[in-house]
Every structure is written in structure tokens, then in C-alpha cells.
Design a protein around this nucleic acid. Structure first.
Lengths: 203, 203, 203, 203
DNA sequence: GGCTAAGCGAGACGGTACGTCTAGTCTTGGG
DNA sequence: CCCAAGACTAGACGTACCGTCTCGCTTAGCC
């Protein structure tokens, strides 16, 4: 599960010698991190604060993660999980519209705050940036791309369309509005966006 | 010139009592800030570093700006200026395509780095966020909107199109790619994006 | 006043630019250090504890002293002062006996604790060791030596006696008993020691 | 052999159930401790360093000794051993002078370093202090006292002399010079000290 | 040969303090 | 009132060891 962000340990979990790491610590740290983000914002999530709140020693945290950003990254991903965005039996248009609305809702809430903070912090931390890229951005893009490819195959959209660009057009505005505050991520907005993008993709 | 970001002074510049502020200090601080961004990245631009590099006292910097982000914000805006994005005698499509390419080029260079960093830092600093919004995002959006409105009037695009959404579709991907690194901000990308958006806006 | 131990500053106190160091900080830190030694022993005198107790920031302490031992060293010396051990108009034997008793009394109290701790800590810290040597041990030895030289000149002791050795015989047992706990530093002990040493120094 | 310092085990070595303790561990730990003292000084002798150097687990060390000082104490005593200081058939003066010279030589070398460090650490650790007292200081004092008593009986020194004080005068300067660095522990010094003390003890 | 008990290496754990860093504020003397 | 210099409080950083605790495995004596 842990790629990039978490400190790797040499051997496989089961055969490693010594006292095994307590999973309570992982849980306590990650949920405290999320609590602190909610309560006081990203900048309040210091290792010291997590240690104080949980009773976990700083050393135990640093044994697992290289810095605070990595903790939050993991906490966030453990929360949002990695379920598929699209159901295989759903129609192209219905599925896409549903997913966009779900995403908008999620971005309007706490997830949006987390995405915003992690994306921002990424600009200053290369490790976090690549973790965010590999574990958040790309998996979602891939799923979207797959959905689009299937749609194209089934004739729901033009075959010669540049899908990468289409995905940018569709998803970039979510991040843009999230960060810029130029307008709400309402369902009306999502529908307008959806319609206008589909306008250009009709076969 | 300074709105939001810079510390306001009570009276007008000319009539204030006491020793007038040296304009050298402003210049030195802002150009040092930009130099430091180029040389070592945003995180290296600390007030202490600027003070050390320029010989200007920290006090003198804090007298003018509330924090380091504000310094960089001002330095950035002083650099990119506020010239109009579109020429009044240019055609809608030609003008838009030219502007997009210019913007892409700018984002590929140092300006991109600065936008990225300021946008990121904005997430953690409300003052900076509103400065960025008021002095960077909105003026440019307004100019684009004006250009689109004129285009619609002249019949270059559909009259019933949602221009806010169109602008999101067109510009959001710039920021997306800038931050996410999912692909280059090449001219090919810009053209593809432009074509696909126009596809949906044709009358 | 500060030799070796305290962090040196380049220019003379009066002409140095910038905000002058607050003498309150020095006072507060040193007296807190002594309080902590009394209350909880040398090992409890941590920089963190001093900072917490006084409200002085750690940085302000580290600006003045390189480590906790140096703080205590200075605090100790500020307390014991540098008054002369012998009065010039006193007879050799009377003066010496009086000084030995005074010293024994001092060693039986808090000063003894401090000497013991500083001497011990010196074994692990070369800077502290040389500070202790230069600012405690040697000045006192010099004063004693001077007293012995005057005594020899006045015929109170043998002219050919090795005074360095005599001083060792007289003072080393103070430190020995202080550390080893082989017996009390009582007046009886002091007198016995004095008599026996003088036995060997009689002209 | 182990008094005070080493952790006691309930039953006698031979009949205790379970796997017997490996003597290799004792050896490895103690010699590593001495090596580390030689190589990098007392402060470098951390339990972690010993464990790392020897491959012995920290648990195995703490099973035997309560803390690092106890380890070094035992290592030291195992090294210097407990042979008698004086030969029964030696004359009082010759024997004493020989022993003093031997001791000076030992103090000039690594033993001196160890004594210094253990004595210093004793100031902060009551257990270590009493171990040092019981297993180093007192046995040697007793042997010296015995030698002096025999000397007094044989008429080599005054019968009414305070032997405790005499021993302090003779041995305290060794520790004093060892710690204070006020002069070398040379044979010349030893002889001068010896002569002067004997001056006062002549019958 | 299996059982019980302790030793052993490994490494996780809660702590404490370290000395460093940067932020933003305050206080000098001098212009 | 400005300016340079630098002291000041505040608080997080990441590190080093401490001494304790769990693991799985090993090594003995005893039934």
C-alpha cells in the first residue's frame, strides 16, 4: 500500500526480526493528522502536535514517515481509499456525469481542503509532489482515460478526439475553482462544464 | 500601486513627516526576492535571506510588507506588469490563440515557477490569497471575458455559451499542468486545447 | 569578566550596533541555574528547564553560552566572586588556618555541591575544564602560593620547602573528601591536616 | 565478584533453570566498553554503541548491568584486578615509595582516564558512587592503613600520628592532579610529596 | 522427546533534551 | 520618522540515547 511516501522497511512484514510495529500507532497518528487538519488547518499539523495529541513518541512517527507532509498524504489516501471511479456496466455519459458530481461534492467538503493543502505543499516538497502524482493524480487520470477509451470505442464520442486534452478540460476546472475561488463547485457548474465539453466531443 | 499586499501608510507619500522611505530599499528587496526564487526556489526566499543579500534591515522590509509571501507577490506583479492581454484590433480567434501561446511560454519559464509558488502559498495565507485573486486572477479573467463577449457579439462564437465555463475550460488546464506535471505546456497542447474548446463554441 | 566560558562578542559592549543584550536575561538565567542545582541537582539544570523557568528563549541562552555547563560555571563564579582569600596584615599561620576553615565550611554547603558537579562535568567537557582551571583552581592556587611565599620570607616555614607540593597536601584532601565521602570536612579534620602539614614545613 | 554494581540474579549460577547466560556476552561487552573509552572517551560509551560494536542486544546488556556507568565500572575493575598493594616482607618506606610510583604510573595512563571518568560520573549516580567507594577507594585505603599501622608498630613513623590524615595527604594529591591538571604525576612529584609527608611523620 | 524457563538478537516504544532554524517583534544609536 | 543592526520570544525541527517492551528463535535441564 505504501509507495514513495512512507519509509520503506527492508524485509517483508512477517519475517522481519524484532518487535513488530504497532498498527495502533499508524492509526492513531493518521487519524490525529486528519483531525488536526479539520480543526486548525494544514499548517497546524506538526509532528509535535500529533505526538502530543496521540501520546505517540516523535521517534515512532519519524520511524514511519520522513516528514509531516508524508503523514498527511498517507492519512488522506487511507481515507479516500482507492475504489474505482466508474462502474463497468454504466453508460459512458451517465457514468461520467455521476462521477463528476460525486467529485464535486467531495471537493466541496473536507476532501477538497485536503487536496488543496496537499497540492500546495507539493510545490515545496518534491517527495510529496511525486507521492501526490503517483498515488492520487495518475490513478484517477488512468481510470478516466480508460472510461473515455471505452466510450470512444462504443461510439459515444468522436474517435479522433484527444482524450488527454478532454480530460484536462473536464477535470482541471475542478482544481482551478478549488484553489482560485472564482466560483462554486456546484452541480450547475458541473453540468454546464460537462455539456460544453461533450459538445466538442460528439461524434 | 500596492493593493492588499503591501502595508498601507497613513498619509500620502509626499506630506508624511520624518525621513522619507528610500525607494532603493523597495527595488533592492524585490529584485533580491526574484533572484532568490530563480537561484534556489521559493522556500529559499526568507526575509532573513533577503536582508542578508541586500544589506537592508529586516525592520525595513517588515515596515513595507507583512510577510515574505507579500514581498514575492509584489516582486512578481512588478515584473509581469499589467499590460492588456488582447489587442483591440485583433480578430477573436487569432487574438485568443496568440494569447494562449504567449501565456504557455510564460508558464514554461520562471513566471510559471512564481505563479505555482504564489498559488501554493496562497492556500495557507488568506491575505496573499486575496491579493493573488484580486491582482492576478481576476484582472486576467476580466480581460478574457471581455474578449469573449466581444467575440460573441461579433458572431465568432455561440451567443448562448456560458463564457465563465468556457474560460475555465481554456485556462484551468494551464494551472493544472503547471502544478501536476501530467504533461508539457507545449504549443501542440495549447493548439489541441484551443481547437477542442472552440469545437464546442462554434455558432 | 567572562573568559573562556561565555561566548565572545566581537566589539566592545558600548559601541556595538543593534539592540544591546539585556542584562536581565543574564541575571535570570544564572539565578535560575543556581536554583535548579539546589532544588534538583546538576543534571536537572537543562537549558530547557532554565528557559521554561525564566521565560527566556533558548536562543537567547545559546547566544550567550555554548552549553549548559558554561551557564552553571558562570553562575557559580558570579556567586562565589573573586575576593582575596588572605588578608595582607594577617599572620601566616593564623591566616592559613582561618582560610582553611572557611573553605571547609563552604565545601560543606551548597558551594561544595557546585564544585563537585562542575569538577565532574569538567571531565567530559574540555571547555568547561579549562574554564574551571583558569577561573577557579588557578586563581586560588596563586593566592595560596603568594601567602606561602610571604610566609617563607618571614621565616614562618622552611625556605627550601616545595610550596607546590605543600599546597597539594593541604588542599587536595578537601576535594578528595568532597568527592569520595571517606570522612567529613570537619574543623577537627582541618586542624589535624593543618598541624600535620605544618609539622613538615617548620623551619 | 560483582557487588553492588552488577544486577544480582536470584539463584546460584549453576542451578538456575533455563538457558544459562553466555560468558561471551560479558567479555564482549566489557572489552568493547574499554575499547570505546580508549578510542573516543567516556561519553562515547553508550549502551547503543556497545550493542552496535559487539552485536550483543541491548536487552542482554541491561539484563546484567543497570546502566552504562556500571558496565564501565565492572570493566575497569576486571582490568585493574584486586592484587595487594604492598608485599608483607617489604620495608615500610621502600614499600610505600614503590607503591606510590606504581600508582602514579598507572594514573598517567589509561587507568587514570578511567578513574577520572568513573569518579566524575559517580557524582551523578549514587549507585555508581557507592560501587566506586566500596570496590575501589576503600579496599585501597584499607591496605594503605594496614601498611601504615604496621609501620607505626615497627617504629618507622610516629605512634601518635593521625593515619587517616596522613593517607589523605599522600593520596589525595594524586586525584587532585589527575583531575585539575595543575601539574604532572611525575616521579619527581611523587618523591617530593613522599618526602614532605614523611617529614611530618618521623618519630 | 517434549516441556519449561530463561537467554538472546532485533528492533519498536514513550521519553527527554539537544542544538538549530526561521518567523516576526522590539530596542538601540545614528541620519 | 527612517534605517541598519541585532537582541528577543516563540515554537517546530529532526537527532541521539535512554531504559523498557515485545517478538521469534535458541539452548539448557528435567520429566
Amino acid at each position: 500500500m505504501w509507495i514513495q511516501t512512507r519509509v520503506d522497511v527492508a524485509m517483508s512484514e512477517s519475517t522481519r526480526p524484532g518487535r513488530p510495529r504497532s498498527t495502533d500507532v499508524d492509526q492513531a497518528v493518521m487519524s490525529a493528522a486528519l483531525d488536526l487538519v479539520s480543526a486548525s488547518g494544514f499548517r497546524a499539523v506538526t509532528i509535535e502536535a500529533i505526538a502530543a495529541k496521540t501520546g505517540v513518541a516523535k521517534t515512532s512517527i519519524y520511524r514511519r514517515w520522513p516528514n509531516r507532509a508524508a503523514v498527511i498524504m498517507d492519512a488522506f489516501l487511507a481515507r479516500v481509499g482507492t475504489q474505482p471511479l466508474f462502474a463497468p456496466d454504466e453508460g459512458f455519459l451517465e457514468g461520467l456525469r455521476r462521477q463528476l458530481r460525486t467529485m464535486a461534492k467531495s471537493f466541496r467538503g473536507e476532501d477538497g481542503e485536503l487536496v488543496k493543502a496537499l497540492l500546495a505543499e507539493s510545490q515545496f516538497d518534491p517527495d510529496l509532489a511525486s507521492a501526490f502524482h503517483d498515488r492520487w493524480t495518475m490513478p484517477r487520470r488512468e481510470m478516466a482515460l480508460e472510461h473515455f477509451r471505452a466510450g470512444a470505442e462504443r461510439g459515444a464520442i468522436r474517435r479522433d478526439a484527444d482524450l488527454e486534452v478532454a480530460i484536462d478540460m473536464l477535470y482541471a476546472p475542478f482544481y482551478y475553482r478549488l484553489q482560485m475561488g472564482t466560483g462554486p463547485l456546484s452541480n450547475a457548474f458541473v453540468d454546464g462544464l460537462f455539456d460544453q465539453v461533450m459538445q466538442g466531443l460528439r461524434p
